[in-house]
Design a protein around this nucleic acid. Structure first.
Length: 113
DNA sequence: TGCTTGACTTACG
DNA sequence: CCGTAAGCCAAGC
């Protein structure tokens, strides 16, 4: 197991239920490319909360969106129910590792791209 | 060694 | 909101 894989999987495993993280955000944390993060999740095994990692649009892995939707509903993850496809409300669900220590700070709003 | 591929992102029209 | 383009990084062939 590479150090990079170990870091990524470690961070993914640290994401609390009801929260998600983007590929790009993870990539910035481990200082690598966003595509690399996706590759690690694909080959990192299914014993990880892969549904808590979504792309910049707030969508999970397209090939398992159904399974991800179940998980989101089960974990009460903030979703944008307005859209036909499963989509996470990143403005509320976005999470970062450093946020664990400073939980008193309010979440910062995200502009609409 | 070199080219293709992909569970991605950001920017521009 | 949608399509296009360029940048990105590791794995596979």
């Amino acid at each position: 197991m590479d150090d990079l894989t170990e870091q990524v999987l470690g961070i993914v495993a640290s994401i609390p239920a009801g929260r998600v993280m983007t590929y790009g955000g993870l990539a910035r944390e481990v200082d690598t490319g966003a595509r690399t993060v996706g590759r690690i999740l694909h080959g990192g095994g299914h014993d990880i909360p892969w549904w808590r990692v979504v792309n910049a649009d707030g969508r999970p892995y397209s090939g398992a969106a159904d399974r991800a939707r179940i998980k989101f509903l089960n974990e009460s993850t903030p979703l944008l129910s307005d859209d036909p496809d499963v989509r996470v409300d990143l403005a509320q669900a976005r999470w970062a590792p450093a946020e664990t220590t400073a939980s008193t700070e309010p979440v910062q709003p995200q502009q609409d791209h």
